[in-house]
Amino acid sequence: MTRLIWLALSLALSAPVAASDGVSGDRERELRNLLIQDCGSCHGLQMKGGLGPALLPEMLQGKSVEYLSTVILHGRPGTAMPPWRSLLSADEARWMAQQLLDRNLQ
């Protein structure tokens, strides 16, 4: 029984990690293409900036996955950054934020 509770607890605790890893292979390819090609329309294919700011890891230092994914989902009112929530789930936005922080764009 105790073991069961521990199992449940550890599952619950690991849920956010599991969720951000929970982007399937096909969807991951789509999201990576979206990140490079469509985010890249404004931020540059190499994320060095354009109409939107550069999104290189050094520019994002100190910003959390939660913060970045909130910006992705809700946009930045008053700027050209649109809310992407109709195209992305919260998990997917977190996955993309993580790729930016890791500079894992290839």
Binding site: D38, S41, A80, P82, W84, L87
Partner: peptide, 13 residues
Amino acid sequence: YGKGTQKLPVYKM
């Protein structure tokens, strides 16, 4: 031209 209505999120200029 938008007549005050909310525009959609602009995903590309």
